[in-house]
Design a protein around this nucleic acid. Structure first.
Length: 333
DNA sequence: AAACCTAGCAACCGCTCAGTG
DNA sequence: TCACTGAGCGGTTGCTAGGTT
C-alpha cells in the first residue's frame, strides 16, 4: 500500500496466540450485548488485550453462534471439491455456500485432507494434476458442462449426523474428543443474499442435525440500525451465579460492560453451554434432547427435513446457485 | 519410554477493496 | 480526486496431539 498506514492496532502489550476461555467469554459477552459494529474499538471496550482483527477472526472462525463445528460430511467434502474446481481458492465464496462453515476451516480441510483425497482419486482415474486453480471456466459452463449436476443425490442429513460417513480417523477423534470445541449448532448466518433461499430451507435441517449440544432453534435477526446480528438463544436453565460472574467479571478483571437488564435467559443459556464447552464450569444437568430425530422427521414426511447439501439438477435452489456462480464467473472474466 | 515425525487446526500477517470525509 | 480507515480475504506459520520408530 505504501500509505504509511498505521497498524490496525497498537500491538505493544497485546496478547497473542491462543485465546483463553476467559477471553472468549469476554468477547462473546460483549458482542452479545453490543454487537460488533467496530472491530477496532471492540477489544478496548470489551477489556480485551487483543487487536480488533484478532477478535474478529476469533469470532468469525470460532465463537460465532452459527458456526458448525465438527467433521465435514462426505457431501460437504464433495461440495467443497466441486466448488473449488469452479472457484479456485476463493475460500470465503466457498464458505458462503456451506452454511456454518468458515473460510478458514474449509481452507484447512482442503490443504490437509481434500487436496490429497482428490489427488489420489485423480490418480486412480488418470493423470490429472491437482492445482489450486479453478478447473472449469464459465465457457465450459456455457457449453453445458455442468459438473456439479452429478452431485450425490442421497440425503445427507443422516450422513451429517451419522459418523459412518466420517473419515476413520475423525470418527476415532470424535470418540476421544467429545468436548474439544463448541459444537453448537445454530442458525446459519443469513447475511449473504445469495444464500438466503438456501438458508431459509436448509437451516432448520442443519440445526437439527448436530452434536449432543445442539439446540432446537436459534433465530438470527438483523439489527435495523447497524446490521449486526442479535442471536435469539434457546431456552435453557443457567446458574445465576455464573451469569453474575460474567456480568461482574469474576472470571477475570471486571468487564468493561454495563449490566444489560434486557439480557435474555437464552443468551445466558448459550453462554453457559459455552462455558461448559470451554471447561469453565461443570454441566449442571443433562442436555435436553430437543432435536427432532432425522428418522422420525423423515417418517413423518412433514417436509421439514431435507438435505441441505443435496444438489439436484431440478432443484430451484441449485438452479439459482448455478446461475449465480455462472454470472459471477462471467463477471470475473 | 523417549525421540521423532506428521497432520490438523487456530491464529497471524500482509494485502486488497470499499467506504468516507 | 485524494488520503485515509476499517473490514475482509487468502497465504502462511506455529503449536499440539497422535502416531511411529
Amino acid at each position: 500500500m505504501g500509505k504509511g498506514r498505521a497498524p490496525c492496532c497498537d500491538k505493544v502489550g497485546l496478547n497473542k496466540g491462543s485465546w483463553t476461555p476467559e477471553e472468549d467469554l469476554r468477547l462473546i459477552s460483549y458482542i452479545q450485548k453490543y454487537g460488533h459494529a467496530n472491530w477496532r474499538a471492540l477489544p478496548k471496550k470489551a477489556g480485551l488485550l487483543r487487536c480488533g482483527k484478532s477478535c474478529r477472526l476469533r469470532w468469525i472462525n470460532y465463537l460465532r453462534p452459527d458456526i458448525k463445528r465438527g467433521n465435514f460430511s462426505e457431501e460437504e467434502e464433495e461440495t467443497i471439491i466441486k466448488l473449488h474446481a469452479l472457484l479456485g481458492n476463493k475460500w470465503s465464496r466457498i464458505a458462503s455456500r456451506l452454511p456454518g462453515r468458515t473460510d478458514n476451516e474449509i481452507k484447512n480441510v482442503w490443504n490437509t485432507y481434500l487436496k490429497k483425497k482428490l489427488a489420489s482419486r485423480e490418480r486412480e482415474k488418470g493423470d490429472h494434476k491437482i492445482t489450486d486453480e479453478p478447473k472449469f471456466s464459465s465457457i465450459e459452463w456455457d457449453k453445458g458442462d455442468h459438473k456439479i449436476a452429478d452431485e450425490p443425490k442421497s440425503s445427507s442429513i443422516e450422513s451429517h449426523c451419522n459418523s459412518e460417513h466420517l473419515r476413520p480417523q475423525d470418527r476415532e477423534k470424535n470418540r476421544n474428543k467429545t468436548t474439544e470445541t463448541t459444537e453448537v449448532q445454530r442458525e446459519p448466518k443469513d447475511d449473504t443474499s445469495e444464500l438466503e433461499l438456501q438458508h431459509k430451507s436448509s437451516s432448520s435441517a442443519l440445526s437439527r442435525c448436530s452434536s449432543s449440544l445442539s439446540f432446537a432453534t436459534v433465530e438470527n435477526r438483523h439489527s435495523e440500525e447497524n446490521g449486526d446480528e442479535i442471536f435469539e438463544i434457546p431456552e435453557m436453565m443457567i446458574e445465576p451465579e455464573l451469569w453474575s460472574m460474567i456480568e461482574e467479571g469474576d472470571c477475570g478483571e471486571s468487564l468493561a460492560v454495563e449490566k444489560n437488564e434486557t439480557a435474555t435467559d437464552e443468551s445466558k443459556d448459550w453462554l453457559e453451554s459455552l462455558e461448559i464447552e470451554l471447561g469453565l464450569c461443570e454441566p449442571k444437568y443433562e442436555q435436553q434432547e430437543t432435536l427432532v430425530s432425522v428418522d422420525s422427521c423423515q417418517k413423518e414426511g412433514n417436509g421439514l427435513c431435507f438435505d441441505p447439501f443435496q444438489i439436484e439438477p431440478a432443484s430451484p435452489l441449485l438452479l439459482e446457485y448455478l446461475y449465480d456462480v455462472n454470472v459471477e464467473s462471467s463477471n470475473i472474466d
